[in-house]
């Protein structure tokens, strides 16, 4: 379960796809890191990831955690965004037979999970098929 503080810390990435670009070698990290694993540089500039890409792999989850039961079965995908960055995201509003590797998607703002009946609501990106 996400705590409000952890959710809040991740909101630049979850809400606005903010990534870190190494000022020395240009490698992009999402989520941001403190040290570049390529050139060991410690300085980054903020960059925003594109909100479109394609599915490079996916898996259907039929037995979900209880807070996802209303959406079961859910698809979890690895999405390669248009700049080459790969992210993991739920693929929503689709059926299993619509999914395939290479299918174009865009990222939409969705409710990711609820912390129980009275806890914080967590929002962020999910992928939807471009139709």
């Amino acid at each position: 379960m996400l705590t409000p503080s952890k959710y809040w810390r991740e909101s630049p990435q979850r809400y606005r796809l903010e990534a870190a670009k190494c000022t020395k070698c240009g490698k992009v990290f999402f989520p941001p890191r403190l040290v570049c694993d390529s050139c060991k540089n410690g300085e980054f500039e903020k960059t925003t990831l594109p909100d479109e890409g394609k599915i490079v792999s996916y898996s259907m989850i039929h037995v979900t955690a209880s807070n996802f039961s209303d959406e079961a079965p859910i698809a979890l995908g690895i999405i390669e965004l248009d700049n080459g960055t790969k992210i993991t995201a739920q693929v929503t509003d689709c059926t299993e037979d619509e999914l395939a590797v290479g299918v174009p998607v865009k990222l939409e703002f969705r409710k990711v999970q609820e912390a129980g009946e009275s806890g914080v609501l967590c929002y962020g990106y999910k992928a939807v098929l471009k139709r």
């Binding site: 209303d70 959406e71 929503t92 509003d93 939409e108 703002f109 969705r110 409710k111 990711v112 609501l121 929002y123 999910k126």
Partner: peptide, 16 residues
Amino acid sequence: PSPDQDVITMSVEAGR
């Protein structure tokens, strides 16, 4: 709305 949509999510999309 889908289960993962509400006033906030639709407002963000319309606002964008």
